[in-house]
Design a protein around this nucleic acid. Structure first.
Lengths: 346, 346
DNA sequence: CTGTTAGCGCGTTCAT
DNA sequence: ATGAACGCGCTAACAG
């Protein structure tokens, strides 16, 4: 690492020589194409391992005269967080082009598994190398992922994983840890009283995980605090607003609120309308216009965020690595749970 | 962005044709080499702008048959944070090699401006394209930075900026915001009582900035809390330990401590020795073995971190961009102030 | 001062 | 089933 001008890296030529075959044969093995005897392929693989060959993706893309095609399939008109994910894709598009990555963004009807499956099925291996999707765990999606992978399109799940599927890699946060973090902060913020939990829908895997983590730390570390809920606001601003208003009206001594779902516009509206701003400690998820406003005005204390920009960046790293072929496990940095107060807003 | 298989990007050939010159001339202009009439150079520059030419760094590196040489000059035996920065460089080295970046790490005597200047002066443009340094604001360093830049070596400052210098770019956090964040949390944690501040040295720019941010928010938002200090521990575990022991002994009702410097091993030792663990709310900087242990045992509540891995990654992005030549401002993601509790430890 | 040309690591015809 | 040769965008040696 430290010697300047270290030794030359191994190339396909070296592999060919070491294996006693021609360049074309090495290339065929490298790209998993037919027309190579099993024995020959073995020899090549062995040679690659022996001399520590590492393929040069940039040179490969250069030779192909084609950029790496990455397609993002994200929910449309879903919520502010998905919007910011989409914006992160668009922000990356320019600099990605400099690294020969072509980004494509397609928005789908939220929670429409059929639509997602259809889009995946329509992806042509020639026109798409990697698909990055946010999807729910339904049979049609699982099948479409399997099919895409088999066609040679690497599928990366984002935000919400499909653990049982054929997806190549997952990029997202540890939602139980997020729930635990919320409890840790809210517990330290609230000396006494009651704490309410609002979820989007308990049928969503990430919401369920957050709730579990929150409940566990609350019970273990802050047994003095009374727990209210969870109630479900279906990630809907209107419904969330009503829930919060009701909570505030019915519980004079309410000390804290943890909204582990979306619909934060409603949360902020209800809090702003209630008289003494800042009387209740509030934690929500995802940095969006609504939660930013909440932090700025002081009605939200903390926002837990999964940093869309970093998620997109890691997704692209995964796309590059999957394009390198091979079945080596893809290595990306874990997505951290970012904690934002008014004072460290980016 | 969204059409698959969009138009071909402009190449040096296109520039040459548009400007009515040969490839070699374009290349000379691109690399700022001599032997081109001013008028010709102008024509080429105009053509590049007109057709939106964007140089392909990977192809350039490929043609040169040489990787981009990036040298990190970091303080040695300084503190745990610098150690983790160095480790981050080493972690990146492998994957960086895949992108034709050769990383070199050199450790220098801490706070030795002469040594840093000497190392910078010794850097040969042929063997080093970009130098990433952590340095203090002294005349000899400023001069060496200026000289390196003039020789064609891009200098990137890390963690601690040199605002008046010729450095090409800075990677680091907003330390005033870090101080504000600490105050925001500590204020919410502590209903009443006194809060003590420990610094490394008030002559360090980043420490001074943190103190200012902390003081500002404390005065504005939590006037009910009494402020003790700042006292200086010189980033030294032993001295920091003594300071904390003294603080705890003299102030029975001490509610919180903010250590905005290093020397956290001493902080943890003193807290662990004091009787009721967790009685005082504590905020420190940088995720290191010591602060991790503190979070795990509960004697530290929050750690503010500047995420060395991300800083190194951004430094490498800056290195790539500076290698593209031109004087376009380098674009990197801002380094976020990460907030860690025991529950979202990575 | 400027142009020509070979070749970097890899993928892809087209022969063999 | 396998190999030779050319081209991707760019640089560098060598002519002119």
């Amino acid at each position: 690492m430290s010697e300047i001008g270290s030794r030359r890296r191994a190339t396909v030529h070296d592999v060919a020589r070491a294996a006693g075959v021609s360049l074309a044969t090495v290339d065929r093995v490298l790209n998993g194409r037919a027309g190579v005897r099993a024995a020959t392929a073995e020899k090549v693989e062995a040679a690659m391992l022996a001399i520590g060959f590492q393929r040069d993706l940039s040179a490969s893309l250069l030779a192909r005269g084609r950029d790496l095609q990455v397609v993002f399939l994200l929910p449309d008109r879903s919520n502010e967080f998905m919007e910011s994910l989409a914006q992160a894709v668009e922000r990356r598009a320019r600099s990605a082009a400099g690294e020969r990555l072509d980004l494509h963004l397609r928005r789908l009807r939220p929670l429409d598994a059929q639509a997602l499956a259809r889009e995946l099925d329509a992806l042509h291996p020639g026109a798409c190398d990697c698909a990055v999707i946010v999807g729910s765990e339904t049979p049609s999606v699982l099948r479409a992922v399997e099919s895409a992978q088999r066609r040679g399109i690497a599928v990366v799940t984002l935000v919400s994983d499909l653990p049982g599927s054929a997806r190549r890699h997952f990029i997202g946060i540890d939602n139980r840890a997020a729930g635990r973090t919320a409890a840790s902060l809210l517990g330290r913020f609230c000396p006494t009283g009651a704490v309410a939990v609002i979820a989007g829908s308990l049928s969503l895997r990430d919401h369920q995980d957050r709730l579990e983590g929150f409940g566990a730390v609350m019970a273990a570390e802050f047994p003095r605090l009374e727990l209210l809920g969870p109630v479900e606001g279906y990630d809907e601003p209107q419904q969330t607003r009503s829930l919060v208003e009701e909570l505030l009206a019915r519980n004079a001594g309410l000390a804290g609120i943890y909204n582990l779902g979306a619909g934060n516009a409603g949360l902020v509206a209800a809090l702003t309308a209630s008289s003494p701003a800042g009387a209740v400690r509030v934690i929500a998820h995802e940095l969006t216009p609504s939660t930013r406003a909440g932090l700025a005005s002081g009605c939200i204390d903390v926002v837990l965020d999964q940093n869309p920009d970093n998620e997109i960046r890691q997704a692209l790293r995964a796309a590059r690595q999957s394009a390198l072929g091979g079945s080596a496990k893809i290595a990306t940095d874990p997505i951290e749970i970012a904690v934002f107060l008014r004072d460290n807003l980016r």
